[in-house]
Structures are given as structure tokens and as C-alpha cells.
Design a protein around this nucleic acid. Sequence first.
DNA 1: ATCCAAAATGAATAATTATTCATGTATATT
DNA 2: AATATACATGAATAATTATTCATTTTGGAT
Lengths: 312, 312
Amino acid sequence: MRQINYSDEFLTLAARLCYIDHIPQQKVAQMLQVSQAKISRLLAMARERGIVRIEVNDYQPRNYELEQRIEKELALKEVYVIKSIGGGSQSGTGYFGGEIFADTLASGIKIGLAGGRTILQLADGMLKSEMPKLITYVQLMGNVGSCPETTDASEIGRKLAAAAGSFVSLNTPVFVYDRQLRDNLRRDPQIKQVVECYNHLDIALVGVGIPENSIFSAGKVVLKEDALKLKSQGVVGEICGRFFDSQGNECQTDFKDRVMAVKLETLRKIPRSLGIVSDTDRSAAIIAAAKGGIINGLLTNEAAAAALLKIV
Amino acid sequence: MRQINYSDEFLTLAARLCYIDHIPQQKVAQMLQVSQAKISRLLAMARERGIVRIEVNDYQPRNYELEQRIEKELALKEVYVIKSIGGGSQSGTGYFGGEIFADTLASGIKIGLAGGRTILQLADGMLKSEMPKLITYVQLMGNVGSCPETTDASEIGRKLAAAAGSFVSLNTPVFVYDRQLRDNLRRDPQIKQVVECYNHLDIALVGVGIPENSIFSAGKVVLKEDALKLKSQGVVGEICGRFFDSQGNECQTDFKDRVMAVKLETLRKIPRSLGIVSDTDRSAAIIAAAKGGIINGLLTNEAAAAALLKIV
DNA sequence: ATCCAAAATGAATAATTATTCATGTATATT
DNA sequence: AATATACATGAATAATTATTCATTTTGGAT
């Protein structure tokens, strides 16, 4: 039985019966002499055409008060504090942070990307609505392991670029065997080109780690004993595989000369260097990074923001 | 785990994730660290509080053009033509007719009720939204059989009164054994009181039957051979068990002196005597009833209205 | 006219949403 | 404090809605 009754009037009738009178689709189907499946399709079309409009009060995901306090305390250019939702799952940081951050972007810019769970969540948040802006994503640090993890900068970059834009990858491990190999790699034209790229970034998106809990912990690159040693060497934080002290200056560690990643020096010159943090144990690292100018912006959640304000 | 998080903000968040971002309740439940059941309840409350608003374009159930043509052709005081919906099921007549009719009522009035499928549908249509008007419903004709049918005037009256108002029932069969019994019944004080009531009705709601298809056909009261005989006696229509000719005058039939129902004479004096019709084979009967002043209003659907206009 | 691709459709099914029910927790009442 | 009552909650389940899939119909192209 074919009738193609997709007139506005028919859609309106179906929508009225279902949405206003709350008659189940099955019954409306009987009334209108079509299948329930078709009612479902009619309603979908009615929503599409705007015959049915579902409106929700605006949800304000940001805590402006905390933002202003942190912006002032750490002398940052931009701060976004996402309200903590529900019991404690902090996925909301990326969910809402992604759309807030995406709104600040212009087409054609270059964004440097670090890896990490929180940055991945941010990327997913950016992608959940269309991202029509053409952006060049540049991998800021080498890959953590041989098996690509979804949290690797390379994977995140690929995913973002797939939606819109292009991706410049840094095809090296993040930590190589020794200084010599690092130096040789740096001379490689392909790598050189990527590193040169770092000087022209508009934005850097970096996670902030601590010795005992960074992107390298899960990958067994930095073990517990390494973390202890790092701390004894004055390390309070890590960004892109580079360990820094409370002033935001890179520390002389076993990793320093073997890391393939953007230099802290370079990050300091990028117009917007945004730290993305969703854990509450990064406060000292954030403060140091801000003090040293490694980051000049912060995107975090209420819980982490509160922890931060406690120790400034 | 008790938390009573029914703040507007929390409702707004849940609603936004479900209705704007179209995330299934199960996932939102995980994000917000509650059960899916609670999300469902949060959304219900959000709709209730107006945080979520579902709007649908107005559906116009009436065909004004047909209404005006019929009103003019039959010289009726009021005509309602409900658009035919879907393939052909004519339940829409009562569904929308009920709310249109209910809108015309004032509290405190008296409405006389006949029986029949279409009147039952109209009653259901009246009841689907609140009917806060206190109305007295009066049974216009006796009961068709011994087993109460949902389509009997008495059942319809009870149902309407249960929602709001009171019901005056006529406790007799519609057709009694002979004239003598009819006359005796009429002298009964209780019956007399009800019949007296007919003189003070504000509205009468009647179905329009034809010899071969009336409320009496299903109940095996009027058989096929009876119908033929009726037609040979000039009957073109039936209202409240009273058979009439093309001028709207009651015919001398085997039923005439055994019927317990409002007189056509009495119906003519009621300010609003509304015929309710949803079948296409009643055209001649409607025309006759209108001509004879038995009805001065009509509530029908497009299909029946079109059939009617073909033969006027 | 005949075949073909595209699209519409309903039955069956999968996915999602709402409700029931048993349990636990806060608040009121003795 | 002890008990009762009302309400909040999540697990299980029922009800409803959306999607898949096989079929049919339509509107061309040949």
C-alpha cells in the first residue's frame, strides 16, 4: 500500500496525536491506517521540517566565577572551567569543553596537539557537532608505544582531521634510545619540516602530567621508580614528554635528551597554549606551567579548578 | 544512594543531552552517574516544569469550505465537518468533533443523548481532554437490548456524567411489546419526569439512521425484511427510534406506537439539535431531518459531507 | 510494452524509554 | 529513641519507538 502522504498536514496530524495528545504510535497508526513504522518515520520528518519543535532551556556548562579567579591568580589569558556533572565522572570536561573550544576557532589556523585521555575527550567534544572549520592539526610529540592508542596525539590528530582539515604527523617514538638518535632524527627532512611547523602554530593543545601520573604511566614508559627519581630532580609537571620544575623550566632528566616533541621554549611563543586538565592532582604542575609561560590558558573542570585554587 | 538532584540545572543538563544532543538515556545515565530510570524521570519532570517544551504546529481538523456549503444548502444553524484522516477510518470524526463540540458547551446546561457508535466516539472525544463543565445528560431513548452495549445512550450518558455532571436515565426498552404498555409506561412517574425533562433541554445529540442500517440493525431489532417494509412505507431515516419520511415527518410504522423515546416534535423545539453522522449512506436521511427541523445542526466528516453535497 | 533503479512500505526485530516493584533512607510522630 | 510514613532509588521488566530487511510499487529509460 503506497500513498506517500508526506504532506505537512498529515505530518502535523500525526505529530499532534503523538506529541500533544500522547497517543502511542501503534494507536495512531490504526487511526491513520498506516503501519507504526510509518508513524515513526512521519514523526522524524515532522521534527526535521520543524512541524515539531523540541526546545530546551539553555544549559550553562561554565563556572564563570572559578574561571575569573583562576585567570587572575595564574595570570592566564583564557580559562574555561566546566561544571562538574553528576557524581564525579569528569567526561563533561571534554564534552562541553570541546564545543566551547571549537567556537573559538577560525578556519585555516594551525593547531598543535599533544596526546592524552583528556585531549581525546576534548576532540570528541569538538566533533560531536559539525566542525566545518578547515584546520591543520600538527602532532606535538612522538608516539608513546608501537601499538597506536586512541589517546596518542597521532590518533587524535587523524580523527580531527578526518572531520575537517589536515593532519601533520610526527613519525617517531616520543622517547628514542639516546641523544644521538634524537639528533639524527632531528636532521631528517621530514621530521625537520614538522618541527619547523611548530613555529607557526596558532594554538597548542596540551595535557599536563605529573611524574607519577602522565600519559607515560599507562604505557609503562615512566615507572614508579622513575617517577620518584624525577621528583627528586625537582620535577613537578610534564607537558609533551618534557619534565619541568616549579618555575616551569625544563629539568635535566634521563628523558630530556631523548624526547621527540615540541620544546617548551617553542610552546612559550605560541599565541594560545592551552592546558587541558580534568584531574585534581595536577595543581602544582599547572601553576608551574603557567608561571613558566608554557601555557597561557587552561581548560578544566570544577573539581580540578577547586583543587587548584586551594593551593595558589 | 539518595541524592534528590532535581535542581533546574540538573534537569536542564539531562534534557539538553537527551533532547538536543540525542544521547540515549542509558549513556546520559552513565555520564551523570545515575540509573537510566532516573534519567527518564528527570526528563518527565523537565517536561512538566517547562524546561523542555515540545511544540507542534496547529492541526486544523475542520473543513470550513464544506461546512459553509452544507450550512447554506440545508439551512442549518451549525455545521462541523471534520477532515477525513488516513485511509478511511472515520474515528477522527468523534476524536476532533468531541473537542470542538465540548468547546461550545457552558456549565449547567442539559444535553439529551441518543445512542450509537458515532455518538460514543464523540463522547470519547469530549472526554479526552478535561471536561470541567458540569452538565446534565438526559437519555433520549430507551435501551436497545437487555445487555447494555457501550453504544447505548444509557452507557454513553453514564460515562459522560462520570467525568463531570449528572445523568438522567430512561429505564425502559426502546421498543416495548405494544402500544398499551407504552402508554402505561408513560404514566409512570419516574418515566414521566424524564420525558418532562425533554422540554427543557439545551441541546440534543442524535445519530441519524436509515432503515437498513441503524442502531437497531446490530441488535437484530430491525431485520432486513423490516427495513424493506419501512422503505415501502416511505421511511428515509431514523432518529431516536423514530422513522421519518423525506419531509422529516414521522411515518406510521409498526414501531411508531411502541417506541419509548423523545418525540420528533420535541426535538424540533430544542435550541440545538445536532445530528452526528460519520457514514456516507445517510445523506437522504440528513436532508429529510434538516428539512423537517428534527435537527438544526450537523457534525460529520468530509466523506459523509461530500456524499451529502452530491445529492442536494 | 519491458526492464531497471529508486524509493516506499510493513513485518519483524532491535533499541530505547517508561513503569513496576522491592528496598533503603530521610522525616515526622509518638 | 522507636516506629511509622512518605518518598527516592535502581534493577528488572513492560511498553514503546526506531531500524532492518524483504517486498512491492513507481517512474522512468530503453
